[in-house]
Amino acid sequence: MEEDYGKLPVTEVVTRRIQEMIRSGEFPPDAKLPSQRILSEQLGVSRASLREALLTLETLGLIRTLPARGTFVSGERTQAPKAGQNWRHDARYTITEVFETRLLIECEMCRLAAPAMTGARLDALADAARTFEIAWRNGDLLAHVEADLAFHARIADACPNGMLRMFYRSIHDVLTESQRVPIPNTEVSRMEASIAEHHAILAALKAGDGAAAAAEMRAHISNTASIVGAKLVQ
């Protein structure tokens, strides 16, 4: 059954469609993708939208672009990139700087958000944590990352400090990329731990314990940073 994309942005729709082609075997492991001209025509989108979709899929480790050879589905002969290898923002910020910033703002936002995390907000956060786990087990990496982004964003939205919320939104693109980058190099045991960390953050917020929620967020971000080689000062 074809997925209903609703009013998703074009780039997100394209990314999902190509992921489906890979998961269904239409583009099998190690297969070379059609040229961007052909693929954009096939999908009925601009090359700009296609390029952005391919960048996202490569960050997630689903495809790999090889110089002078083309773009291939990751497989035995075409391995996913190593952690942090596809960091797009390196000209402006290192991956370590981004995770240092995440520690500074997300832990504090988590602490401040605790009193406001009640009712519908907690339900939405629990739903994101549940989707994060289910999508991973189903192999839907895009839905998995989207749930992760939603989990962190819902905590940020509940933070009563308007300046922190504004700053968080202003660096959204960089934060999004930092949550995609670890995926290709995340072992099953580490993902199980990450799922547990999300539930620990949720439990602390449900208890209204801001200090515990901030501590759980710090542990989660630090553990994720280690996957991509970010050198955090403890």
Results as ranks from 00 to 15, higher is better:
R137C: 01
R102I: 09
A113L: 13
R102K: 11
R121A: 09
C110F: 14
A143M: 06
R137Y: 09
H144I: 00
E106L: 14
A150H: 08
L125M: 08
R102E: 12
A126E: 12
V145H: 15
P115A: 13
A124C: 08
P115G: 05
R111M: 06
F132G: 01
D140Y: 01
R121T: 08
D123F: 09
F132A: 01
R137Q: 01
H144K: 04
W136Y: 11
R137P: 00
L149G: 10
A143C: 04
L112W: 14
L125F: 12
A126V: 03
A153Y: 14
E106N: 09
W136P: 03
A135Q: 06
M117Y: 14
R102P: 10
A126Q: 12
R102W: 00
H144L: 02
A135R: 11
R137V: 06
A128L: 06
M117T: 01
A114G: 11
A135I: 01
I134Y: 01
V145I: 06
A147W: 03
F151P: 03
A116S: 08
L103C: 10
M117A: 05
T118H: 15
I134F: 00
L112G: 06
N138Y: 00
A150W: 04
A113Q: 14
M117W: 15
M109C: 07
L104S: 08
T118W: 12
G119R: 12
A129T: 11
A116Y: 13
H152K: 10
L149K: 08
D123P: 03
P115W: 14
D140L: 04
D140V: 01
W136T: 03
N138L: 03
I105L: 13
V145G: 06
D127R: 12
L104D: 10
D148V: 00
L141E: 01
A126C: 05
M109A: 05
H152Q: 10
R130M: 01
R121D: 08
L112Y: 14
C110V: 15
R111Q: 14
C110N: 12
L112T: 07
L149W: 06
I105A: 04
T131M: 03
R130Y: 05
A147F: 07
D140K: 03
P115Q: 11
G119K: 14
N138V: 02
L112M: 13
A114C: 13
A126F: 10
A153I: 01
G139K: 00
E146L: 10
R121G: 05
C110W: 13
R111P: 06
A120Q: 13
L149H: 12
D148I: 00
L112P: 02
C107N: 11
A124I: 12
C107G: 15
P115C: 09
A147L: 02
E146K: 13
L142S: 04
T131A: 08
A153K: 12
T131C: 02
L112C: 07
A120W: 12
F132M: 02
A143P: 00
L103G: 08
A113Y: 15
E133D: 05
E133F: 04
M109W: 15
D123W: 09
G119S: 05
L142H: 06
T118D: 03
L104F: 15
E146T: 02
